[in-house]
Design a protein around this nucleic acid. Structure first.
Lengths: 354, 354
DNA sequence: GGTTAGCACTCTAGGCGTGAGAGTGCTAAC
DNA sequence: GTTAGCACTCTCACGCCTAGAGTGCTAACC
C-alpha cells in the first residue's frame, strides 16, 4: 500500500552523513537549495568547500540529493530524507517544558473522549507548525453497553446506543404512535437483557432467537434490527472522523506559493481513503511511522510528508495521531511531538478501559 | 455588525439595468473584464458599442462598475452586485429536476439530524459549485429530556444527557468506586424526576432544593451539577459545529490563483466568530440573505460572498445553511438553491418537533 | 438630444535580451 | 585525499519593446 523505498546503499561514511545532515537541516530552515560554501561556513566543517562539493556529488550519485539546475545548491530527495530519518537523526524526546504545557492543556479540557482528539490535533499543529491530524480511538469491534428509548413526541422516538468504549450513537425512529413510557422501557430492558456487551456479529447471531418475546414483540424486533444496523455502520466507517487543525500552517510554507499546489495539498487531506488505509495499517500497533513525499501513493501527496503514530489498546480500540507537513519538515521535532502526544492519548484511553 | 451599503441611487433606466445585468452575467461566466463590443455581440443589444460605452461610463460613475485600468473592460463592484441582487435579478426557484435529486439524497441518508447538516453542506457545494456551509439546528435554550448513568468500569461512569431536540451529550465521571447499578439507576431516576424538561436556567434555580435527597445525596448532587454545566456549555457554544464542504470548488476559481488569496479565503472560513455573528443575526428568522465581498467586516472575507438562509423553528431551534463563493458567483442560482435546501431542512426540523 | 462611426490614446501582457550572481565541476598543485 | 583557482552554466531580475484590447472623445447623423 505504501511504496517504501529503502535506501539501496551501504552505510555512508561519517563525513558524508554529517554533510547530508547539514544539507537537510539547512534546507529545512531556509527552503532554498544549499551550496557548498554556505555549508562550510554555517556548520564549521573542517574541510574546504571543494571537498564538500565532491561529497555532495557522491550523495547526489547515491540519489540522496538533487540539483534543481547546474548552478544551484543541493536539495534533499525523498530518499535523502528517508536515510536521514532512519540512519542519521536521533529521536529527541520533546523538551520537558513543552511536555508540561501540553499535559496542562489536556488537563483543562472537558473530560470526554471527543475533546481529546480535537485537542490532540490542535496541539500537534501548534507544536510542530504543520497540520495536526487525529482520529478517534475506534474499537476493533464495538460492543453494546446499553440501549435506551426516549419518546421525542407522539410520532418520533430516539434510540440511544451506549457502546462499551464510551461512544454514544443516536438514531431517530418513526412511529404511527409512539408507545407509552412503560412499553418503551420494557422493550429496551428486553433488548438490553439479550444484547448487552455483544458485538455486531454476536448480535446478528442472537437476533433471530428473540423474535416474538415481550409485551410488544414487533417493537423489540424492530429495535434489535436498528441496533444491529447502527453498530454495523459504526464498525464499517473508516476514519469518517479525521480531525485536522492548522492547515494554514502548511499552506503558508513557501513551497506552496502556487495556488495549484495549495489545492493539491488540500485535496490530499480530503483523500480519506488513502489516509484511512494508512491508519488501519498503523492501527496494528508499532511506533511512529514516517511517510515521505513520493512514498505516498496518491500524486497529490507527493509534496507532503506524514508522521503518524497509533495509540490505544491493540485488539481493543486504536486511533492514530500525527502531523502532515511539507516534505521539508523538521522530522526530529515532529517525531518527538507525535510520539509524546500518542503516549498521552494512550494514558487517557487506558484510563477509559481501566 | 454587517456593513450594509444600500445603492445610493435612483432607479436606473431599463437599458442601464439590462447592460449592468449583461456585464455581471458575462463577468460571472468569464472572470475577465468585459468590454463594450463583447456585450453588443453576445447579448444582441439594439445599440452600438459607442452607446454601450457611454452607459458603462454612467454605471461606473454611479459606483456600480469599475475599471482595472484604462484599456480594460468593466468589472462589477460590490455595490454593482448588490444592486443586481436587489433590483435586477429575479429569484428563480431551483429546477424541479434538481429539487428531486436533492430530495432523493436526503431520503437515502440515515435518519439522524447530524447527517442532515453534512448532507446539506455537500449538496449545496455540488449544486452551486461553491463551498457549502451548514450549522446544526441549535435550540434557543436546550431542555433536558433525560439523563442516564452507565458504568464503564469500576472507576469510571458515563453520564448521558438526552436533550429534547434529539441531541445527545456525553460526559465521563471519575469515581473512587462506581456505585452499583441500582444506585446509579436510583440516582438518575431522581435527577430525571426533578430536572426533566427543564432548561439550564430552570435547573440552576431548582438545583439547591434537591441537595440531600435519595439514598446517595452526594451522587445526586454531583450529577445535577454536571448536568447543569454540560447544558450551560451547550447553550453557550456558538457555531462550534460548522460543517463545510466543497472548499476546493472555491479555491479552483481563477480569482484565487495566488496562494495568499487562497490562504485568506481559508482563514475566512476559520473565522468562526464572524460567521457566528452572522448566523445568530440570521437566526431571528427571515429569508435568504446575501453578503457581498467588502460588505463583510473581516478583511479576509472581502473577496468572497455569502448566501445564507436560516431554517428551523423561530424561538425553538434555528440553524443556518448557505454558500460561500467568490464575489463573482451566480447569485440567482445560489439564492435559489440555498432557499430550497433551507425549506427542506425546515421540513425535517418540523418533523423532529412534530 | 440621443446615437453612431471614426480615431487617437492608454495601458497591459508577454516575448526578448542582457548582466549580475551563485554555485558547480574540473584540473593541477599540495 | 585535500585544496585553491578558474572557467563554465544556469537562473533571476530588470528594462525594453510590440501587439492587442478597449476606452473616451469628437463630429456627423437621424
Amino acid at each position: 500500500m505504501v511504496r517504501r523505498i529503502r535506501p539501496a546503499l551501504g552505510p555512508l561514511d561519517l563525513r558524508a552523513q554529517a554533510i547530508l545532515r547539514a544539507v537537510i537541516e539547512e534546507y529545512v530552515l531556509t527552503a532554498t537549495p544549499v551550496g557548498s560554501l554556505a555549508l562550510v561556513e554555517k556548520y564549521n566543517l573542517p574541510v574546504s568547500s571543494a571537498t564538500v562539493r565532491s561529497v555532495l556529488a557522491d550523495l547526489e550519485a547515491a540519489g540522496l540529493l538533487s540539483h534543481p539546475h547546474t548552478s544551484a545548491g543541493r536539495v534533499p530527495t525523498d530518499l535523502g530524507y528517508r536515510y536521514y530519518v532512519e540512519s542519521i537523526v536521533e529521536t529527541v524526546p520533546l523538551p520537558a517544558v513543552e511536555q508540561l504545557m501540553i499535559r496542562h492543556q489536556f488537563g483543562q479540557v472537558e473530560f470526554a473522549s471527543e475533546h481529546w482528539f480535537r485537542l490532540a490535533a490542535s496541539t500537534l499543529a501548534t507544536a510542530t507548525g504543520s497540520a495536526g491530524l487525529a482520529t478517534p480511538a475506534k474499537p476493533v469491534a464495538a460492543r453494546l453497553r446499553r440501549v435506551d428509548l426516549v419518546a421525542m413526541h407522539d410520532r418520533l422516538a430516539s434510540l440511544i446506543l451506549v457502546l462499551r468504549e464510551g461512544t454514544v450513537k443516536q438514531q431517530l425512529i418513526n412511529f404511527e404512535q409512539v408507545p407509552d413510557r412503560e412499553t418503551l422501557a420494557a422493550a429496551s430492558a428486553l433488548v438490553n437483557g439479550h444484547l448487552a456487551d455483544l458485538t455486531a456479529a454476536q448480535i446478528e447471531r442472537r437476533l433471530p432467537r428473540f423474535g416474538g418475546e415481550g409485551p410488544v414483540p414487533d417493537l423489540t424486533r424492530r429495535i434489535g434490527e436498528r441496533v444491529l444496523r447502527t453498530m454495523r455502520a459504526f464498525d464499517a466507517e473508516k476514519i469518517e472522523e479525521l480531525f485536522s487543525d492548522g492547515l494554514l500552517n502548511v499552506l503558508a510554507a513557501p513551497e506552496f506559493a502556487q495556488s495549484d499546489k495549495v489545492r493539491r495539498v488540500f485535496s490530499a487531506l480530503e483523500n480519506r481513503s488513502y489516509l484511512g488505509k494508512l491508519v488501519s495499517s498503523l492501527a496494528g500497533g508499532g511506533r511512529v511511522q514516517v511517510f515521505i513525499g513520493g512514498e505516498n501513493v496518491p500524486v497529490e501527496m507527493h509534496e507532503v510528508s506524514l508522521v503518524l503514530a497509533p495509540y490505544g489498546q491493540p485488539g481493543r480500540a486504536m486511533g492514530v495521531v500525527g502531523v502532515l507537513g511539507p516534505t521539508r519538515m523538521s522530522y526530529s521535532h515532529a517525531i518527538g511531538t507525535v510520539s509524546f502526544v500518542s503516549c498521552l492519548l494512550n494514558e487517557l484511553v487506558d484510563h477509559l478501559y481501566a
